[in-house]
Design a protein around this nucleic acid. Structure first.
Lengths: 331, 331
DNA sequence: ATGAAAGCGCTAACAG
DNA sequence: CTGTTAGCGCTTTCAT
């Protein structure tokens, strides 16, 4: 790899002149400039990012922390973050935390040691010490898809209450009146918000969602089967079900099918997340989409602004979810 | 962030001594060492990775290129690479190439400018100029899940021929005699190898897989429906089908179900990759697993060896796939 | 065993 | 407009 020195030598100028030509912000004589530019092309010079990052304190790198890479919803976010960073010629370092505070801490640490431009995370564990580390180091950090108690850290969220509203409206629209709901873990705020939107909207329509019609699950496949078992054990009758994540919705679907219950004929089923797979099954799954691309783009924008000196404390961007109609609620 | 200078000042030694204590390779007086170690703890010193990387030409970073992050098979590899790098305190920068040679080139370029320790890729586009760039820069590179014509680059592969053998054996075992196959793109070597293993094994059992019983698909969902349409148009009778990727197998499954054809009762269905989802549907999908964890670990090991000075040209590690029994072939 | 000094490749302040 | 100088934080001779 050619260095600035090589270019300078070839163009018969000092390295600082080369630096000026590249940055473009400081005036350089036209003839000098073109000589330098020729030399740059000739030796195929590309600035070393470590040297730049060391000097400028900006590693040209964004860190992204997720709890599980292979979960389709997170994979979509990873893709979106990659898209937004690549567009800006930033790199993305990815860390899989497994919700392990130790691993979170270790990866944040190594990111900071890379003079990272910003760290974005979805679902940091609550016991994480990392937030303080980041705040103390004055590195821009943005939480995505989850609000954090730590108010100093800005976030970009979807309107989870409205997601519940959309789900309820649609199930009512297709004629369901006996509903049940499978939530995510209810210690997570977004699960509660979704449930509230769902419950409130049903109530307005005169449909009362009793406590026993709500099954507290997780965002994992396994809880789907457990939910169906639970409803069966309680001998609850239902014609519509909202599961707060597509992956869990598939758990529900598989168990319903195993029991010979037809979707959508006997029960209308809705999920949430709009993972790729939700259009790939039979029946395909009606779901609530989250604007991952936009969320991630916003998160990166916020990081960029903070690096530009803007103070973004207590800034929380709220984006709207959408309804995606498919077969599982088609009547 | 505290620097070496801070530690040195506090411990009353020079920075070089601090460096020696940290590297551990050069003898340092015990009393000095403990003084330095105390100081390190006191100021919570952590070496700056950019500075280290700049000096030592090793960025402590592995680059990973995939064509599509959200494809479950690649997501699994990403997870495995992350696991293997994190274990070694290396970072992972991820790039989504979309099979776009421009984007491949751009990301390889930025990786090299980070003094990256090694680059691992699955499925570089054939027209990629990047291979030469990498070879010229003497940066360790390993191809995963695909052999490359470029012989200088080592690779770690699964035995795709044997995958075909396993698929054929199992379908024969469950009593299928009228078989069809949906391949990946046949210009990709691994698709042809899988098909060869499948065909040869059937032939040994006296089952002849005619040309028209092979549908050239891709590793995408959409080709599944097209394949079923094609077989129907040809009025081919079949009781067993092997699809060379799980995601395409779901395309086949959905279309079969739409047509009222029951799996496995009417047709036994097998996929390949063992993506998470293949256990989450009803019926769950019998499939061929690829040892992603091991493949990725081996790839990282190879990179490490090359960085250690070992020459690995023309080294190709072959790993064995496995059979995963599920409902879609259960009789 | 330890310190001083040079340098990795770059940027920015200071001179001119 | 351009060159010289210093320094980002680290490692590695080279002295002592």
């Amino acid at each position: 790899m050619a260095s600035m020195k090589d270019v300078a030598r070839l163009a018969n100028v000092s390295v600082s002149t080369v630096s000026r030509v590249i940055s473009g912000t400081i005036p350089v004589d036209d003839s000098t400039r073109s000589r330098v530019e020729e030399a740059i092309v000739k030796v195929n010079y590309r600035p070393n990012l470590l040297a730049q990052g060391l000097r400028s304190k900006r590693g040209m790198l964004i860190g992204f922390l997720v709890p599980m890479i292979t979960h389709p919803a997170f994979a979509m976010m990873i893709e979106a973050i990659e898209e937004s960073t690549a567009k800006r010629e930033l790199g993305m370092v990815l860390c899989n935390t497994h919700n392990d505070p130790e691993k979170e801490a270790a990866s944040i640490d190594s990111m900071l040691r890379r003079n990272i431009d910003g760290i974005i995370f979805s679902r940091v564990s609550d016991r994480s010490r990392v937030l303080n580390i980041i705040v103390n180091s004055r590195t821009p950090a943005v939480v995505i898809d989850r609000s954090l108690d730590h108010e100093a850290i800005p976030s970009v969220l979807v309107d989870n209450y409205f997601a519940g509203v959309l789900a309820a409206r649609h199930l009512l629209d297709v004629g369901c009146r006996k509903l049940v709901c499978v939530t995510g873990a209810l210690n997570i705020t977004l699960s509660r918000e979704r449930l509230n939107g769902f419950t409130d909207t049903l109530k307005e329509a005169g449909v009362h969602l009793t406590q026993e019609r709500v099954f507290e699950g997780s965002f994992r496949y396994e809880c789907g089967k457990r939910a169906v078992d639970y409803f069966a054990a309680k001998e609850l009758d239902y014609d519509g079900i909202w599961v707060q994540s597509d992956i869990a919705a598939y758990g529900v679907l598989a168990e319903l099918q195993r029991r010979g219950i037809r979707v959508p004929d006997d029960v209308a089923l809705m999920g949430m997340d709009n993972i790729d797979f939700s259009s790939m099954s039979y029946p395909s799954i009606t779901t609530i989409s989250q604007p991952y691309d936009l969320m991630c783009e916003k998160a990166i924008e916020m990081v960029e602004m903070m690096n530009g000196g803007t103070v973004l404390k207590e800034q929380h961007i709220l984006l709207q979810p959408g309804l995606v109609l498919r077969e599982s609620t088609g009547r």
